[in-house]
Amino acid sequence: MAAKTQTWYRPHIISNPALRWVLALGIGVYLAAAIGTLDINWSRVAEGWPRAQRFFSGFMPPDFFSRGDAILDGLLESLWMTVAATALGVLISVPVAIGGARNVSPVPVYLFCRSLMAVSRAFHEVLLAIFFVKLFGFGPFAGVATLTMATVGFYAKLLAEDIESISVAQSEAIRATGAGWLQWLDYAIRPQARPRAIGLAMYRLDINFRESAIIGIVGAGGIGATLNTAFDRYEFDTAAAILLIIIGIVMAAEYMSGHIRKAVQ
């Protein structure tokens, strides 16, 4: 073989150099434009530290006890809302997910279920809560309605994606036995989608609890409502206590749901 000096350059991710430069330029221009419109008031930011100190000194020390009953009440309400909304949401989601899986359902049903998911997902929980509070009045009923709808958007979509990615061989094998559509769902789809369905339900339970702490701020019940009341009354020490409790519970829930999901897999 003839000895030749050869050089090698790492191939670029985008092989077309023109496209590469246009893309890099585009990102640069975007960043400049976006940062330009940020409109940062630096003198205001500089004042931030003393302001933050004043703000946080109002929080200190957290007061867990003087409104202890209200806090406990709010927490329990959050818990009821979370459990009820997750259960209802999963119940509604399962048929929607089956309808929204391309490999299981006919096109019209698929499109209907997918648009249902898209609309439930598009609006943030807080926006949904504002409207449900308007419709159903203040309190946990609006909260349950909000969380149920949010659960459908989340759970049905992810479950439908899981159903779409099941093993084709297993589903073919059951169809080849002459099974009916429902039997096929039961024997080919259900065993494959089950672990994900349980894992997602645990995950959503966790998310719903966090969100229940937020949607209360706009009047949909739960610990968030207690938090809002504390802010309205300028009881920042109680508010600090509530925030700490929420963070603690979220961390504990996260730790636990991680373990449960691992056990189910």
Binding site: I174, T177, A179, A188, Q192, R194
Partner: peptide, 22 residues
């Protein structure tokens, strides 16, 4: 089937009985 195509998460008996689904 090639690669067996059993429903992996079901026990042997349910896999065999699934042949009676029709």
């Amino acid at each position: 089937f090639q690669e067996y195509a059993l429903v992996e998460r079901l026990p042997v008996m349910e896999n065999v009985l699934s042949g009676r689904l029709g």
